[in-house]
């Protein structure tokens, strides 16, 4: 919910130039790629052959989406091709950590949120048709991806019910994860500051080490 709220707040700043659109599409690509890893882990880990097939099919869709988003982003901003993190993604081993029932409930929530966000962006682009900021191809791309997302959303809900998963439990886990991530971000910043100060305090040791290295050389 917070992500959607934030996305709505940022509306005036979207679609202003191809570079910011590219950045947004690359974020989508990264999320799809992360989902690919999780779905492949699920496909390899589940013992049920029917669900293995469902997870493989889902993973292949996610890989295709990641590629489509990346290609469109590079058309909009070719300079991003040099970005070393272009094909990076997070892999959180969600299947292993959550177990199958909670995992598939979480997948359902993620798909629903992603599809809602894409629908919002798609509507914004629809409203821009005929203006200078129109981007028909990105709109068509979102349309194409949303069709798959709807099918993922629906099969994952069916499976979640079949396996006795709890959407409330998955939501609670998601909130906890968000809280921990925010905490990690803040402590990371404090840590970097403290370590930078520590580094500067190491100056006398650095001087000694440099003199030693010079003497040895």
């Amino acid at each position: 919910m917070a992500r959607l709220f934030l996305a709505r707040l940022m509306k005036p700043f979207r679609w202003r130039n191809p570079r910011s659109t590219a950045r947004m599409l690359l974020d989508f690509a990264k999320a799809e790629r992360s989902s690919f890893y999780d779905m492949m882990e699920a496909a390899n880990a589940t013992g049920d052959l029917k669900r293995k097939a469902q997870y493989v099919s889902h993973a292949v869709d996610e890989a295709r989406h990641a590629k489509m988003f990346t290609l469109r982003a590079l058309e909009l901003d070719p300079s991003r091709a040099a970005d070393p993190s272009l094909f990076h993604a997070d892999f959180e081993h969600l299947f292993t950590r959550l177990g199958e029932a909670k995992f598939i409930s979480f997948v359902h929530l993620g798909e629903k949120r992603g599809r809602t966000q894409m629908a919002m962006f798609r509507d914004e682009l629809q409203a821009l048709e005929g203006t200078k900021r129109a981007d028909t191809r990105t709109k068509a791309l979102l349309d194409a991806v949303m069709r798959d997302e709807m099918s993922h959303e629906s099969y994952s809900l069916v499976l979640s019910k079949e396996l006795g998963g709890s959407l409330v439990g998955a939501r609670a886990w998601e909130l906890k994860r968000g809280w921990l991530r925010a905490g990690a971000l803040i402590t990371g910043l404090i840590y970097t500051l403290l370590m930078s100060v520590l580094y500067l305090l190491l100056f006398p040791l650095a001087l000694l080490e440099k003199m030693k290295a010079k003497g040895a050389g």
Partner: peptide, 20 residues
Amino acid sequence: LLSMLRTFPRSLRQFPRALA
């Protein structure tokens, strides 16, 4: 750590990351 000291102060940005 020794590499960081030998390249002081150029390794300022690298130091927190490397130590983390």
